[in-house]
Design a protein around this nucleic acid. Structure first.
Length: 219
DNA sequence: ACCCAGGGTCATA
DNA sequence: TATGACCATGGG
């Protein structure tokens, strides 16, 4: 099942008309983007905001100061974001990686991506968040919302692999950083408010595009 | 009380 | 390679 650019752009414009520009990523620095990307793994953003505020207040929202902080103190600061022991370790891995790789931003996207993936705690989605929103690379971020929305619309197999799906979008849309930035943000906003796991899809602007909306409503 | 959230790693078969 | 357990908080 191939993805078509025109179809994807049609959906994009419906979302944009409905929700407006999102101005992502909600962070002030590339480092803050990376930290947020780790903290939001399987976690509601509202919880991440509290953790980030704690880090800011403690002066820890910077590579070297975060690295100097003991693991347990870091875990305490990010407590509201959940999985705090796991994530404290992952944040330290990220910091050590950044320290080991000065001039990281000069790498091409492919080698940069494989470097990121080699870091403990950075998987495909987190790596792509970082590539797109911290390094402005034309990488389409795939997450649970993306898979749910487009499988409900009926243009992908819900079990399609991450890599296949990502490259499908990138080939269909062409490398376009501002588009990828806005599109992913819109997918998330739409997913949080309307395209939920058991939603009835009543307020869905994709109504006519969405196969499942009718199916779910008829239940 | 239950479900879910802007995933990833590790052990097991 | 493919599942399953595990990590943990907070809002609806």
């Amino acid at each position: 099942m191939r993805l078509h650019g025109k179809r994807l752009l049609g959906i994009y414009h419906r979302l944009l008309d409905r929700y407006g520009r999102q101005h992502w990523w909600p962070a002030e620095t590339p480092f803050e983007v990376m930290v947020g990307a780790v903290l939001t793994q399987n976690t509601a953003w509202s919880n991440v905001e509290k953790a980030i505020a704690n880090l800011k207040a403690a002066g820890m929202l910077e590579r070297d100061s975060m690295l100097l902080m003991p693991r347990q103190a870091l875990a305490e600061a990010i407590h509201p974001a959940g999985y705090f022991n796991v994530k404290a370790k992952r944040l330290h891995s990220l910091c050590r990686f950044l320290q080991r790789h000065p001039g990281l931003e000069r790498l091409d996207s492919e080698p940069l991506r494989s470097r990121l993936l080699s870091v403990h705690g950075i998987g495909p989605e987190t790596a792509d968040d970082i590539l797109l929103y911290a390094f402005n690379r034309p990488v389409f971020v795939v997450d649970a919302y993306t898979r749910r929305l487009f499988s409900r619309v009926g243009i992908i197999d819900p079990d399609i692999g991450y890599e296949q799906l990502r490259q499908g979008f990138e080939k269909a849309l062409g490398a376009d950083v501002p588009l990828f930035n806005e599109y992913h943000a819109l997918i998330v906003v739409h997913g949080k408010s309307v395209c939920r796991p058991r939603a009835l899809c009543e307020a869905c602007v994709l109504d006519r595009h969405c196969l499942q909306s009718g199916v779910i409503r008829r239940q």
